[in-house]
Design a protein around this nucleic acid. Sequence first.
DNA 1: GATGAATGAGGTTTCATTCAT
DNA 2: TATGAATGAAACCTCATTCAT
Lengths: 228, 228, 228, 228
Amino acid sequence: MPEPTTSPAIPTEDEPRAVDGRVPGRRGMATRRRLLECTAAMVRRNAYRDVKVVDIAREAGTSPATFYQYFPDVESAVLALAEDLTEEGKRFAELVTTTTWRGADGFEAANELAGAYLRFWDEHRPVLKVIDLATSEGDARFRDLRTSFLADTAQALRDAISRMQIDGRHPDSMDPAAMSGVLVSMLANVAAHRRGLEEWGVAPSALQDAMARVIFWAVSGQKPRQTA
Amino acid sequence: MPEPTTSPAIPTEDEPRAVDGRVPGRRGMATRRRLLECTAAMVRRNAYRDVKVVDIAREAGTSPATFYQYFPDVESAVLALAEDLTEEGKRFAELVTTTTWRGADGFEAANELAGAYLRFWDEHRPVLKVIDLATSEGDARFRDLRTSFLADTAQALRDAISRMQIDGRHPDSMDPAAMSGVLVSMLANVAAHRRGLEEWGVAPSALQDAMARVIFWAVSGQKPRQTA
Amino acid sequence: MPEPTTSPAIPTEDEPRAVDGRVPGRRGMATRRRLLECTAAMVRRNAYRDVKVVDIAREAGTSPATFYQYFPDVESAVLALAEDLTEEGKRFAELVTTTTWRGADGFEAANELAGAYLRFWDEHRPVLKVIDLATSEGDARFRDLRTSFLADTAQALRDAISRMQIDGRHPDSMDPAAMSGVLVSMLANVAAHRRGLEEWGVAPSALQDAMARVIFWAVSGQKPRQTA
Amino acid sequence: MPEPTTSPAIPTEDEPRAVDGRVPGRRGMATRRRLLECTAAMVRRNAYRDVKVVDIAREAGTSPATFYQYFPDVESAVLALAEDLTEEGKRFAELVTTTTWRGADGFEAANELAGAYLRFWDEHRPVLKVIDLATSEGDARFRDLRTSFLADTAQALRDAISRMQIDGRHPDSMDPAAMSGVLVSMLANVAAHRRGLEEWGVAPSALQDAMARVIFWAVSGQKPRQTA
DNA sequence: GATGAATGAGGTTTCATTCAT
DNA sequence: TATGAATGAAACCTCATTCAT
């Protein structure tokens, strides 16, 4: 349901600036976007740390100097890319919130959540990989991004689990926050390493099913009915 | 002048070679070990990618040239460090194998497995982090190491789950391989990001408990009795 | 559409030209002046060598391209600024010429000359500093400016000293040109380094007094009566 | 007169270090010295700001990387050069201290001081020019060097003037500190701009004589007897 | 065995400068 | 007139790596 009355002039990208502080015009924005796309492409093809400004620039058909007109370094370009994903990430929380987690519907929701994560990762693998990578390397900017990205889902799961606990579906000894953390970790990591797991002979659908089972059980405290 | 009386050809470690192919003597081995320790120390303090040969050498009180006498690059030194962990990693599989996964004992085993992973990570965080990092960057040598490291646990879990499935504790539609993959992913990732989760206000013991619950349920198909 | 009624061809300043050779109109002149002022401001705040075209342009609220419409480089802008001082510099020669250099009046003149130099430097320090700087770096344009600037005072002092020498106040062995050179050097350098000297604990008034004494003695060959 | 008993191991150069912290050996010191000499040569030939690391390295027959092994930047190399002059600079103070400043001897001392400054500048013009330059540009390291360099002479002059003042040769209203500052300024600046002055037709000997007259008068309060 | 020294190679940055609009 | 954009060119600086001792 859209919000028809509000936010008349919110720009999609919140005012990218050239390094000298000016807001780029049409042509500049095009160049910026081209650089961003090439950055994504480079990151897809090569290891993040091997992506050089020179390469991005060459790929985009410009010079390094031009790159520096829009981004202070490669990291910032990737960061810009990553921020685009943030919005999309909020969808996951919705999935969690808009279900009762009971019976077949509950399992269906779990299944959708798992699928959504897998697909999201497949679609944005290069950038998401860099986020994980930079986060483990201790980069604060990326860590914040990753945290805020996962936090919504985690919060939603935690609320759902808490409600179930109040309904007596979980023993009081279980910590909803801990469990939701475990689930989010699982989601993110399985999605990230899906290929590795598939190399072990695990079918994609089986993987999603296993994820869904864990989620459903951990949230609702119930075995899923016979599925898949 | 050679040293005729002392253990001439039995190197402590699995035959490390100097670059020129000769097996180092007592003094050389000491230097090698010192370099290894300093590598570990540097990796602990700095981001992996910022660890330079020069720094390790200086930290160890030698020169870069000496470093190259023992390792072709920083990666190899870390790899040597990482291989030491491999053996220790096999223990996890044992934990999984030597339990029936029934009743309170089963939950106890799950709890121990979770605890073991958490402790293992805490102890070897720097090196394990690099393994994860290099793996995501696509480094084959590290990926193999990681895979073989996790594969034992995964295999053991898979077998345990299969047995339970045969006993009728799991529906046939569930793929034991997929589920064990999900569990291993969860274990490794929660252990790796424990600090992040604790920043969200999750107590360490609650975390371990949540992990144990997931494992126990996923293996045995049963809710743990009221615990923790 | 031209502006038929307003002073079409009488530029305020000595015919500044835009790069394309055309004499700027009213709007252009305003821009030029703004650039000049910002140049002065930048030079005041930063080391001369760190003043970049881009910075001046941004400070003036225009673009580098506009700067180049009026000046071929930063140096030229500063030169334009410097030339404004040249006229004012001639006053010093007058001071020297319009006194008899005898008795208390003579000392008073010396004192005024010293004070005038100090004040002039205080007022135009940034530009004067650049003149000195560029001169030491061997820049011919600035050296000529500096020379012509000091030459008037030097010439006037030389004439005054010569007259005194003819009157027998100085031995024939003294070279008036050399002495006037020494005085001018002293004036310019003390004025330039006034702050440094004050850090050594020298009061401004004492400094001016010391300068005046040297000048008075060197010109008149007489000790000043007890003063200040 | 040497000091036979003390300081057995004081190194001439106060322990130059390579960038990595180690004290260079014989070969390294030779390279360092060569780089220093080439730096001096480059500074002599070109404007200071135009001296690039690449040029020095090429001139010295090495690579930029080697330069950076010994100096973090060109400035530091010049600073090393400049520090060598500091010691030599102390001689001037001695000249001032070891005379009574009375009669012909006094003038002789003034004359020597002037000559010493002129010769010192002639000999070390390139480096001294950079010191002045960098000082005016606001570089603290160079300013400190320059200050300490001149401070000895200034202090000695001030003491001499004070003694004369006590003897009644100067009115109480005269500030010895201010006067010594004026003298030092004059010495340094005339020496620096000697060429410029000579272009005005001032003979070198006349210049030195004029300087000496000013010094002698300012210190002793007396006209020099007929000289030169 | 160990290591001072030297350096090739390559990426990063910064600007002055130029056009097309 | 003014200026967004683009960029060539020139330094900078850092390391991994290699010898000769």
